[in-house]
């Protein structure tokens, strides 16, 4: 898949912005265009964080996305707010450790991953964002794992290469967990 637009949302501190940055940067490394937009406007309030990423082979028009193809929701309020906006046929990725309610839509694919639990098992709950990124890549391979690895290596240069490796593990863990986990469209 070449193009994608996505909104990722959660609490501040959950690494939402970083998730988007890794994805967008990986796309750029693969020669694609990408835009990354942090929370803006009313979304900026109240401890929530959102980011919008658009990836495309050619020119990107609007970096502002009202009706994303993909939603990554790291908490309940984000799911409630953004799930209704996902385009029909799109994809909703939910951190099942943080959100227990179902996604009230039958026209989108849903992937539920215990991201926080899985990250905790890997030693740091803050890597839940990378688990979700992995889940995303398994469902829509918009960038290669290799590009993601290069971005993480760049983000955690020596002497932090252990962090880079741990984050890669979180991504591959998320990929494995979500493979086949996507509920088909009903």
């Amino acid at each position: 898949m070449a193009a994608l637009d996505l909104i990722a949302a959660g609490f501040g501190g959950q690494g939402i912005l970083f998730l988007g940055e890794v994805l967008a940067w990986a796309a750029v490394l693969e020669g694609k265009n990408a835009t990354w937009l942090p929370s803006y406007g009313p979304e900026q309030r109240g401890g929530t964080a959102t980011c919008t990423v658009v990836v495309a082979g050619g020119t990107i028009g609007s970096p502002v996305v009202a009706d994303p193809e993909v939603l990554v929701a790291m908490n309940g309020p984000s799911l409630d707010k953004f799930a209704p906006r996902v385009r029909p046929g799109g994809l909703v990725i939910v951190d099942a450790s943080m959100v227990d309610r179902p996604v009230a839509r039958s026209d989108v694919r849903v992937v539920r991953v215990d991201a926080v639990a899985q990250a905790a098992a890997l030693g740091d709950v803050r890597m839940a964002n990378m688990v979700l990124l992995g889940a995303l890549l398994a469902a829509v391979p918009v960038v290669s794992l290799d590009a993601v690895k290069r971005v993480l290596a760049d983000q955690f240069p020596p002497p932090n290469e252990a962090l880079a490796a741990a984050n890669v593990k979180a991504v591959t863990g998320g990929m494995a967990a979500s493979r086949g986990a996507a509920q088909p469209l009903r």
Partner: peptide, 10 residues
């Protein structure tokens, strides 16, 4: 505008 200033692109 604030959006252009804070968005990232290649």
């Amino acid at each position: 505008d604030g959006l252009l200033g804070q968005m990232m692109e290649p």
